[in-house]
Nucleic acid binder design. Structure first.
Lengths: 162, 162
DNA sequence: TAAGATTGAAGGCTCAATCTTA
DNA sequence: TAAGATTGAGCCTTCAATCTTA
């Protein structure tokens, strides 16, 4: 319900900058990765999170949490990656409702080939733009970004995850 | 071309936080606005930028620059808004290739009705999450976000680094 | 030739409905 | 009943092709 409310100038500026970034960044990443390694950023990050998981193996829900994608979207991405032989679906040993996604050797290789392109893209689109920024505190920015977006009391590192 | 490259831990953390936000924020805004005022965030921001322009009037290309949307997408959004009577298309007086988009009275009214809902959404999804954050420097974050995303030498104040 | 804008096809993402197992 | 996952319909967005006027 709309209560009497407004944003400060500082808040408005932040909102505008953020609104711009959430449009520009996905376009930039998808464009760069698509052109150079024929992969969407969703696919790239899915492979990346799998490669970092113990055994290269994650449940669908864990993959959704890691990528911030919806479960439905994860299913679609995994289906596509599986069709390319980059991941495999395995029944979950402890819960027969669940499925594990497992990074294949081909998937690991594909990720390795994509990584340097992605790093170059990230440098060009992000960190190169911050060169010479006076008093840059990247960690402080990271903290801010880590907190926002959710509705619930932020399931940030540490804090109550129930 | 992939050169020898990598990201520092700080940079990786920033990238992860940013990647999460660019997925979460559009979903949150579109969900809130869609439920409460049946409008997408693209439509909302389009109306907002029009309302801030002199005469409530902007060229398609200016609208694209303001919203960071592509020209093709702006055409579609404006078409939809026009069908609802919230904006009007007018031939541009000085360049017959161009079209102005003009905010109507109905559009201004609709925007006014949506604004408080949007502010509530922004508070809930963003600024409430930052309450109690020690040493928060919102302006510094804004500066960082304002710089990233583009490919070209950043149309920011100062330097043009090739 | 190039710039402003539009269009249609294709792909990304969300959401609600559904199926299976706990 | 609820949780994990999948599916299909539909919207959002991009991209390349196209049309008109500079």
């Amino acid at each position: 319900m709309p209560v009497e409310a407004s944003l400060s100038t500082e808040e408005q500026d932040f909102l505008r900058a953020l609104s711009r970034v959430v449009v520009l960044i996905p376009r930039a990443f998808d464009s760069d990765l698509g052109r150079e390694v024929e992969m969407s950023s969703s696919e790239f990050f899915t492979l990346m999170h799998l490669s970092e998981a113990p055994g290269g193996r994650l449940r669908m829900g864990e993959l959704a949490a890691a990528t911030a994608l919806t479960l439905g979207r994860v299913t679609q991405v995994v289906t596509r990656l599986e069709a390319e032989g980059l991941v495999e679906r395995r029944p979950c040993a402890t819960d027969r409702r669940g499925h594990d996604t497992l990074l294949t050797a081909a998937g690991a290789e594909r990720l390795a080939g994509a990584r340097s392109h992605q790093i170059a893209s990230v440098r060009r689109r992000i960190f190169d733009r911050l060169d010479g920024l006076d008093g840059l505190d990247l960690a402080a920015c990271t903290e801010v970004l880590s907190r926002i977006g959710t509705d619930a009391p932020t399931p940030s590192p540490q804090t109550g995850r129930a």
